[in-house]
Computed example of a mutant assay.
Amino acid sequence: MAYPLVRHRRLRSTDALRSLVRETSVGTNDLIAPIFVTEGTAVKDEITSMPGVYHWSLDTLEEELAEIVGVGIQAVLIFGVPDHKDATGTSAFDEDGIVQRAIRKIKALYPGLVVIADTCLCQFTDHGHCGVVHTTDCGAEIDNDESLALLAKAAVAQAKAGADIIAPSNMMDGFVAAIRQGLDEAGFTNTPIMSYAVKYSSAYYGPFREAVHSTPQFGDRKTYQMDPANAREALREAQSDVDEGADFLMVKPGLAYLDIVRMLRDRYSLPIVIYNVSAEYSMVKAAALQGWIDEKAVVLETLTGMKRAGADLIITYHAKDAARWLKGN
């Protein structure tokens, strides 16, 4: 009888052996939990398209924070839903804007929790775009350089409020350099920038846009977010942000772009962040609610795949559940 020369199954025969030779692991300290804060009082409203994810007002926010900290998560990403929107998104850089007030509250309650502030204008503008819009004879146009000045103001306001990390998600050209200069001039030279370096114009953002009420009122974001068909362009985008002083590089969305994560991991030594975005979350939740999948198994496999592709950190709406599961709860 002929035998195989190599028996790979020897190392798969027991749980202990499989654990011993496991190449990739996901830990609670790899996870970043997004939070949606909104104006009002006594608000804890579930987002329809994102079961288990809520809008929180400042007076109810402590409930969410206590749960996040209680499961061992060390970092949160803050998104604000304002009650006032205008053409230039002024509440994004108002010292009393919802994000700035939320940051101050979080740092007062949990000083050791890492607070990451999403820095964009789309949820604060009445047109829903990530920059200043001008109307020309050719139609509406996003003014790149004018937008940079406002984004830098927003970043400084967030840093003043106590944000530990600034995470600009706007995809304007030169945004890392503009924000770095703004932070440095305001005395925040040690505040790192987690750049949404490679952000695609994706269909996977639908539930998020419901959550922050940021659907564009006209057109789309294809003139500043990346074409999903392009990979080499991702390297150009990332290189620009590295040259401008980014401290982290992010790829968004996650599942359909694991090849991009690997490309960045192979090229750069900076921490790589992946965003497990809203529709990726909602598809899993919808299938789990129907009993079609094992939610725990699918989520942990997905997060492991993201780490295996090269991500150091994972922003995910599954963060609290994943943290519990990783602890065996």
Rank of each mutant, 00 (worst) to 15 (best):
D96Q: 15
G131I: 00
T48I: 15
I106R: 04
D96K: 12
T119G: 08
L58K: 06
R236Y: 12
G80I: 02
A167I: 06
R221K: 15
K285L: 05
P207Q: 05
G328T: 03
L289V: 11
L113G: 08
R265E: 06
A246F: 12
G328N: 08
A108G: 13
G174R: 02
T302A: 12
A286M: 14
D83E: 12
I166L: 09
S13R: 15
P216W: 04
Y275K: 09
K327H: 15
C120T: 10
R12S: 09
Y205V: 05
A287E: 03
E301T: 13
A42D: 15
K160I: 14
L235R: 03
K44T: 09
E185A: 15
L235K: 04
L113V: 07
F218L: 14
S195L: 07
A229F: 10
D247E: 07
L258K: 05
I166Y: 00
S57D: 02
I293A: 05
E95P: 12
I106Q: 06
D227Q: 04
T125F: 04
I106F: 04
Y3G: 11
Y196C: 08
D59W: 06
Q123E: 14
Q123D: 14
F36D: 04
F218Q: 09
G70P: 09
A323G: 06
L326I: 13
V261R: 01
L61E: 03
G174A: 11
R104S: 13
M250K: 08
V261N: 03
V69E: 10
V242R: 08
Y54I: 04
M194D: 00
A322N: 00
D30I: 01
R209H: 06
D118V: 10
G174L: 11
K85D: 10
Q239M: 12
I193V: 11
S19K: 14
A297F: 14
H134M: 12
V37T: 11
F218D: 10
P82D: 09
A246Q: 04
E67T: 12
A229T: 14
G80A: 07
S202E: 04
T48C: 12
V277D: 09
G182D: 03
D83Q: 15
A311M: 05
L11R: 15
D30Y: 07
M50Y: 03
A92F: 06
N276T: 07
A246G: 06
D86T: 07
D126V: 01
K296F: 06
L264H: 00
G27Y: 03
I272L: 03
K153V: 07
N170W: 01
I103N: 02
